[in-house]
């Protein structure tokens, strides 16, 4: 299988970047997209060129490290997948595949396809946890959580933090990411004591990091590999009003 990659190359954050074309032969349909990039990198090494820097780690769709914009879509042509779970069988012989890094001013480019998503960590840092020290827990079954609540908390908790929501959003809004974490914890009884503070602090940080505001285009929930529903954002908004009024 032969395709042409057009890949964003950029030396570092401050450098000027550009799309560069690479014709790659010898690919197979069973290869994952990232394996095709591996293959291209091996060719580049043997041609004495620098390899393309791209993010990846677990390659099974859970760590959230991988993520590039492929042919105009976050994580490629399929809904709700990660880049690492995209396979070359999704492309045709002779295709041109444009690969760009996540675009958002809060995600500066580090190099080539690698961006800095530490803004996400700083949002979590502002309250995406339950303030309880190791060793202070009571017997687990002393806290009863109905299956429905637990399941819906789990739905939100499934976020892998890849940043596709921000990348695909025309506003570079981090609302889906932030809402997922807030709702995961605020739905559970364990998260109640600091529910309002968590919500206000995390959303404040989200704004401080310069993420845009949500206008409900719905693109994020289509691209989200963890299937996080956009209703999470609406729920966050509802909780925000409550927190402002009663927090």
């Amino acid at each position: 299988m032969k395709v042409t990659f057009k890949i964003w190359r950029q030396e570092n954050t401050d450098a000027q970047g550009e799309l560069k074309a690479y014709e790659v032969d010898g690919l197979s349909e069973d290869m994952s997209f990232l394996e095709a990039l591996d293959h291209l990198n091996e060719i580049l090494v043997l041609k004495d060129e620098k390899v393309i820097a791209f993010e990846h780690d677990c390659r099974e769709g859970i760590c959230g490290q991988c993520g590039v914009f492929i042919n105009g879509r976050a994580h490629g042509p399929h809904n709700n997948t990660t880049t690492c779970q995209l396979h070359m069988r999704s492309f045709k012989e002779g295709d041109t595949i444009v690969v760009e890094p996540w675009r958002a001013s809060s995600f500066p480019i580090v190099k080539d396809l690698v961006v800095d998503r530490s803004a996400f960590d700083r949002i979590i840092q502002q309250g995406g946890y339950i303030t309880a020290k190791t060793g202070t827990a009571a017997e687990a079954n002393a806290i009863l959580v109905s299956k429905e609540v637990s399941d819906s908390a789990m739905d939100a908790a499934a976020c892998i933090g890849c940043g596709a929501c921000v990348a695909t959003c025309k506003n570079a809004s981090a609302a889906l990411f932030t809402a997922a974490k807030i709702n995961h914890l605020n739905k559970l009884p364990q998260g109640q004591p600091e529910a309002h503070r968590r919500l206000l602090d995390m959303t404040a940080q989200m704004e401080f990091e310069n993420f845009g505001s949500c206008t409900f285009t719905g693109a994020c929930e289509i691209e989200c590999p963890a299937d996080i529903s956009i209703s999470n954002i609406a729920e966050m908004n509802a909780r925000y009003v409550k927190a402002k009024l009663f927090g």
Binding site: F69, G72, V98, E100, A104, N210, T217
Partner: peptide, 30 residues
Amino acid sequence: IITFRNTKSKGEKYKVNHNNKNSTWMSQNM
């Protein structure tokens, strides 16, 4: 104001963007 700020948040645009695959045209062009 929101549109202005959101455009700034987004920063550089994609060379290729097929957002018609994940959202409606009007939602992208309010």
